[in-house]
Computed example of a mutant assay.
Amino acid sequence: MGFHQQLLHETEAARQRMLRIPIIGRALQGSIDRDDYTAFLGQAYHHVRHTTPLLMACGARLPARLEWLRSALVHYIEEEVGHQEWILDDLVALGQDRARCAQSEPWFETELMVAYAYDTIARGNPVGFFGMVLVLEGSSVALATQAAQAIEHTLSLPRNAFSYLRSHGELDAEHTEFFAGLMDRLDDAEDQGAVIHAANRFYRLYGDMFRALQARSAQMAEAA
């Protein structure tokens, strides 16, 4: 078994716990409302805008023995730079003010996930950052395109309100094979352990963002 398959196996339980969060299932069925989708995009902006800085920070901290992995990060940076602007485009298509969205504060759960990513790179083994890559890209492949189609159909929203989800679903499908190849080249037990550890944490942290979204949605429904 290559390390990529080992990684998937040892994080599957955490992945399934995240996928069982009710609002994720509702999104895949298109049974969320416009406010839910808008709130999701708002939080996505607050973690996606850190993707390129995180990739750069990870590359700066990698040891010389992983120079090949640093080169791979250049590919990721080229693919990911500016994606937060897609999210703002989608929010504008939903009637939101671009500047206000960009200047808003993230929820606690979103901020904590981003902070943990920086901490993993700065204080722990920077290779652990690839645990976050697994969680976010893997989730995009599994959920993004299907959710976009369901939500667009149910809410009759304009297609230009889904550039982030649709593009990420397509891009991350391409990235999955690339990511698997990188993970299978990791042959150091400490590096492998760092990725597994971080991935399990990020499934919890990313899931917490959806749990917060679900709680917010329930509160708004009660108020209505």
Score class of each variant (00 low, 15 high):
D97Q: 07
D97W: 00
D97I: 00
D97R: 01
R98L: 02
A99E: 15
A99C: 06
A99M: 09
A99I: 05
A99D: 14
R100Q: 14
R100P: 00
R100D: 10
C101N: 04
C101D: 10
C101W: 01
C101G: 04
C101E: 14
A102C: 06
A102N: 03
A102Y: 03
Q103R: 12
S104L: 03
S104Y: 01
E105W: 11
P106H: 08
P106Q: 07
P106L: 08
P106I: 07
W107C: 09
W107P: 10
F108Y: 14
F108Q: 14
E109L: 07
E111F: 08
E111K: 15
E111Y: 09
E111C: 10
E111G: 14
L112Y: 15
L112W: 13
L112S: 12
L112F: 15
M113P: 04
M113Y: 10
M113S: 13
M113V: 09
V114L: 04
A115T: 13
A117M: 13
Y118S: 03
D119Q: 15
D119Y: 12
D119R: 15
T120R: 12
T120D: 03
I121P: 04
A122L: 15
R123K: 13
R123Q: 14
R123V: 12
R123T: 13
G124T: 06
N125C: 06
P126H: 05
P126S: 05
P126E: 01
G128V: 01
F129N: 00
F129W: 10
F129L: 14
G131D: 00
V133M: 06
V133R: 04
V133P: 00
L134I: 04
V135C: 05
V135D: 02
L136M: 13
L136C: 02
E137F: 03
G138K: 01
G138E: 01
G138W: 03
S139H: 10
S140I: 00
S140D: 15
S140E: 08
A142Y: 07
A142F: 06
A142G: 08
L143K: 04
L143N: 09
L143W: 09
A144H: 13
A144D: 11
T145R: 11
Q146G: 11
A147D: 02
A147Y: 05
A148V: 05
A150F: 03
I151L: 09
H153K: 14
H153Y: 07
H153D: 12
T154Q: 15
L155E: 06
L155V: 07
L155D: 09
S156H: 13
L157Y: 08
L157W: 10
L157H: 08
P158V: 02
P158A: 08
P158L: 07
R159A: 15
R159Q: 14
R159T: 13
R159N: 05
N160S: 09
N160A: 08
A161G: 05
F162S: 01
F162M: 03
S163P: 00
